[in-house]
Design a binder for these strands. Structure first.
Length: 935
RNA sequence: GGGCGUUUAGCUCAGUUGGUAGAGCGCCAGCCUUACAAGCUGGAUGUCAGAAGUUCAAGUCUUCUAACGCCCACCA
């Protein structure tokens, strides 16, 4: 018996998740059921979590992705694997530093005054205090991570791993230092990788200024166009296309740069698009990526005119020095205008790069940076992908991944911030010599005063790139975890970090470990709101998973909207108030997870709204709770005999067959990451087959059957329910564990188990169901016929407006002996399900009864004086219409000679059979109508 | 500019080798049938975005078009 739990009485009519979920999670943790055992004889199955930022709060994307991982981990754990899910967090360099900076700002402290050491201390303090919030939230979700292995990208081991990785890459010449033009954020004062810069689609409103640059010693001028006039201070050439005949005579001459007075050459370069603007391009190598490249080709001066904060520096004429870049822009425009050199100003949408983090417009800045040489590494990853050592699902992302690897550029990994892994490189103060080492290099130790350490830290993604093996003990090559769990089985993540993270893990994994970091990559769809917009903080359209789990007042639901203050704020609030005037009642983690999983198709995005969690997850948890309650109530009176078990009835065999089929479907679906398909199969099996049919059919047997027959039903129910709980556990771990706590003692006490299950927690010990091969095609088809008959009978009853309680007589007039036999074999089932007094096979048509024609038979229901001729007529006329439509379809096919001659024999025969069948039915319906009209 | 995705019932979406269009919600009618009214039973609802093609047969394959969305690269 369990030490604790189950927690909720089965008397409860509605399932109340919140309290139970917390208690159950505690129980699991206390028992250590999530802990991987690297000495186990079981086969390993491992996943390393995409580490959320320490600054993060759980959002819907996390909820989805972690539900997915948890499903697979729990599935494998139950299925006999030593399943390990390694959790952890990412130090998120810039993001965390700016969060703490804001806190300090609020205290009136400038972090720069604090100094590097103190600031880092403050960030650590903050991290210790708030950094684990997201891990606690993952627990609320039910994530079965091995918390004893929790890692942090800046903990001791991982920091060591980062240094080792850097040093090894450096030794191999794959890390280098160089001057380069980088994306520069003037707010955070750091370089950013391309992936951290975002450009709004279609650009942002701006202007295109056309300036005249006078040709030296001439009355002529060239006209250049720019969207960033301030950069002219750093111009070192004007370029034209060599094929542009308008300017060939100018090549080699110089222009005198207005305001500055510098003489700069007119050069020819293919990069210039002759058809754009005037075909003349000002070249500013220090402040534009393309200009930088042109500058290299022509050996132009690289004139940096800006400070770190993008104010104008002393390279510029005095009047502009110290000005902010946008002030300088205005001033330059008016100065040019005053000189009569402003040709015109056009309004124009211009591409504007912004820092993803600070939202500031980025500058391009020439500086000393560290880079990873990507080509050799990318080739490793490409090869692994071509050899199928990394498989990506859905498959379409494979190409996206490969395209990037084929075209990738060197990766700038230095960041000018304090929070992160400080680059283990030292510079000789005089010679400029560089020393790199995992520990402080000996020459530095010998003469420390002559050296200084690099102040930059590494891009956060540098440490993330090592995550799958650094978390398992690398660079210790004989670490038990590393040996056992690397390569991991799966990486599940969002596709927007396919380059930023996935590709880089593949590259470094292959380089450092000589093996792929994961065999499979699964990209889940993007979560969008009900209008199809991606959820984001700035739009205020996010749904907080914890609100879904715990519920929220209307005010709390407003939170994200109020914080973001989007342009359509009013509409959003209005809609919220209309839909949830009394707040949202929490549905629990199970319902959240189940909803997300059944919505998770192979599409690129999935639209969700709060309502959906009620419609899908909540409804289903409630159904599961109630049906289980009912089943278990019927175990109360179990006679604990183990002899004389009655034979299985048709419905018993049928439901067990369907159970097996459902099990096979779910396994197949989970193995191929088709979560919606798998869980929908279980959903429908449980709701439709188990609840609506099997439970309804067996109520009577449970009430009035013999003890031995009751036991048969109980035994079947026991297997069905215990299997369903196990099938659903990966998706809905809490409620299934809770119900398992109720069910298991009853099953054991009554010797109702048809298989050995010796376990006290479902989570850890219960085996995942297997397909016993009991699905019987023939029996299942027969059962479908019964259901057809029942549906027809119920329909007739409703048509005659008769109470469902009234027991009626029904008659079957079969067109074929076979059908008659089939129907008779299901007599009990049909009678029970349609409230019949009797079901009789007749060879002569009964009269004055309600009639329905189904394939192969006519069904009559004796509704006596309640026969509503009008209703009968209209129902059968409708049936006739349908048959006619179908008939036309078939006939047109069969009349088509090409069809009969070219379609496969079987298909043609099937159509012919269908024709006879439909014709036969039509005749019967016509006949019935005739008789009805005669009444 | 390049790549990808989506377009199926009023809404949100399934639809795996081409072979009579499905689910949930919503809607209509009837039921408090002893697990569940947060439920049960029955019912209505579709030129599968448009066009062309391949095929005996197309929601499904090919091409083109349109709308919407995402990613990458960015003409100063």
């Amino acid at each position: 018996m369990k030490e604790c739990g189950p927690f909720l009485s089965l008397d409860a009519k509605h399932y109340e998740p919140q309290e139970i979920e917390k208690k159950i999670y505690e129980m699991w943790e206390k028992r250590g059921v999530f802990v991987g055992d690297n000495t186990s004889k079981k086969k390993p199955y491992s996943i390393v979590i995409p580490p959320p930022n320490v600054t993060g709060r759980l959002h819907m994307g996390h909820a989805l992705n972690n539900s997915i991982q948890d499903v697979l981990i729990r599935y494998k754990r139950m299925d006999g694997y030593d399943a390990l899910w390694v959790p952890g967090t990412d130090h998120a360099g810039i993001s965390t530093q700016s969060v703490v900076k804001k806190h300090l700002d609020a205290e009136g402290i400038n972090y720069r005054d604090l100094g590097r050491e103190k600031m880092i201390e403050r960030i650590w303090e903050w991290k210790e205090k708030y950094g684990n919030q997201i891990l606690r939230q993952l627990r609320r979700l039910g994530a079965s991570c091995d918390w004893s292995r929790t890692r942090f990208t800046m903990d001791e081991g991982l920091s060591h791993a980062v240094k080792v990785a850097f040093a090894r890459l450096y030794e191999k010449g794959l890390v280098y230092r160089g001057k380069y033009i980088v994306n520069w954020c003037p707010i955070d004062r750091t370089a950013l990788s391309n992936d951290e810069v975002h450009t709004k689609e279609g650009g942002e409103p701006g202007h295109l200024w056309h300036f005249r640059y006078p040709i030296t010693d001439s009355e002529e001028h060239v006209i250049i166009a720019t969207t960033r006039p301030e950069t002219m201070l750093g111009d070192s050439a004007v370029a034209v296309n060599p094929k542009d005949e308008r300017y060939t005579n100018l090549i080699g001459k110089t222009v005198t740069l207005p305001l500055v007075g510098r003489k700069i050459p007119i050069i020819a370069d293919d990069y210039v698009d002759a058809s754009f603007g005037t075909g003349c391009l000002k070249v500013t190598p220090a402040h534009d990526l393309n200009d930088f490249q042109i500058g290299l080709r022509h050996d132009l001066d690289q004139i940096n005119i800006m400070n770190e904060d993008a104010s104008i520096n002393d390279e510029a004429p005095e009047e502009f020095r110290g000005l902010d870049r946008f002030e300088a822009r205005d001033k330059i425009v008016s100065a040019m205008d005053a000189l009569g050199l402003l040709e015109k100003i056009e309004d124009r949408m211009t591409p504007v790069g912004r820092s993803e983090r600070s939202k500031a417009i980025i500058e391009y800045r020439l500086s000393d940076q560290w880079f990873v040489k990507m080509r050799p590494l990318a080739d490793l990853a490409l090869k692994a992908s071509e050899e199928g050592r990394i498989e990506i699902s859905p498959h379409r992302w494979d190409r996206v991944y490969r395209d990037w690897l084929e075209n990738t550029r060197d990766w700038c990994i230095s960041r000018q911030i304090w929070w992160g892994h400080r680059i283990p490189a030292w510079y000789h103060k005089e010679t400029g010599e560089i020393a790199v080492g995992i520990d402080t290099p000996s020459q530095v130790l010998e003469n420390p005063d002559a050296w200084e350490q690099e102040t930059d830290v590494l891009d956060t993604w540098f440490s993330s790139a090592l995550w799958p093996y650094s978390t398992l003990g690398w660079p210790e090559m004989d670490a038990a975890d590393l040996n056992r769990y690397y390569p991991t089985n799966l990486l599940s993540t969002a596709k927007d970090i396919i380059y930023l993270w996935v590709a880089r893990m593949a590259m470094t994994g292959l380089f450092h470990m000589d093996d792929v970091p994961f065999h499979h990559v699964y990209f889940h769809p993007t979560i969008c709101d009900e209008d199809g917009e991606t959820m984001s903080k700035s739009k205020g359209n996010g749904i907080d998973p914890l609100h879904v789990i715990d519920g929220a007042t209307t005010e709390e639901l407003e939170g994200p909207i109020n914080e973001a203050r989007p342009h359509n704020m009013e509409t959003m609030l209005k809609r919220l108030h209309k839909m949830f005037p009394d707040g949202f009642k929490g549905v629990g983690a199970d319902a959240l997870r189940f909803s997300l999983l059944t919505l998770n198709s192979e599409a690129q995005q999935v639209q969700i709204s709060l309502k959906r969690f009620e419609e899908i997850g909540k409804r289903f948890t409630d159904k599961l709770w109630n049906a289980s309650r009912f089943v278990m109530q019927n175990f109360e009176e179990v006679p604990p005999t183990s002899e004389g078990l009655a034979d299985a009835q048709i419905e018993d065999e049928w439901i067990l067959g369907r159970l097996d089929r459902c099990t096979a479907q779910l396994r197949e679906a989970l193995d191929t990451y088709r979560f919606n398909v798998g869980f929908e199969a279980v959903y429908h099996f449980f709701w439709d087959d188990v609840c609506d049919w099997y439970l309804e059919l067996t109520k009577e047997r449970l009430k009035t059957g013999s003890k031995n027959d009751i036991r048969r039903v109980q035994m079947t129910l026991g297997e069905v329910l215990s299997s369903v709980l196990r099938l659903l556990h990966p998706a809905m771990p809490f409620i299934t564990e809770e119900l398992w706590g109720h069910l298991l003692p009853k099953l054991s006490a009554g010797e109702l188990m048809s298989e050995e299950i010796s376990s006290d927690t479902l989570c850890a010990q219960a085996p995942f169901p297997v397909d016993h091969g009991r699905f019987n095609e023939e029996l299942d088809t027969h059962f479908e016929t019964y259901r057809d008959v029942v549906r027809s009978l119920r329909n007739m009853r409703v048509g005659a407006n008769l109470s469902p309680k009234l027991e009626l007589e029904a008659f079957i007039f079969p067109m074929e002996e076979e059908i008659g036999k089939t129907i008779v074999s299901g007599e009990k089932i049909i009678s029970r399900a349609s409230g019949l007094k009797s079901l009789t096979l007749v060879s002569e048509k009964p009269e004055k009864m309600s009639v329905t024609v189904i394939p192969g038979a006519e069904i009559y229901l004796n509704v006596a004086e309640h026969l509503d001729v009008e209703a009968e007529l209209s129902r059968n006329e409708k049936a006739l219409e349908k048959l006619d439509k179908r008939l036309a379809q078939i006939e047109s096919k069969l009349h088509n000679e090409k069809f009969t001659s070219r379609a496969p024999e079987q298909v043609v025969q099937a159509e012919k059979d269908a024709l006879t069948e439909v014709q036969r039915q039509k005749e019967k319906v016509l006949h019935a109508l005739e008789e009805l009209r005669a009444l």
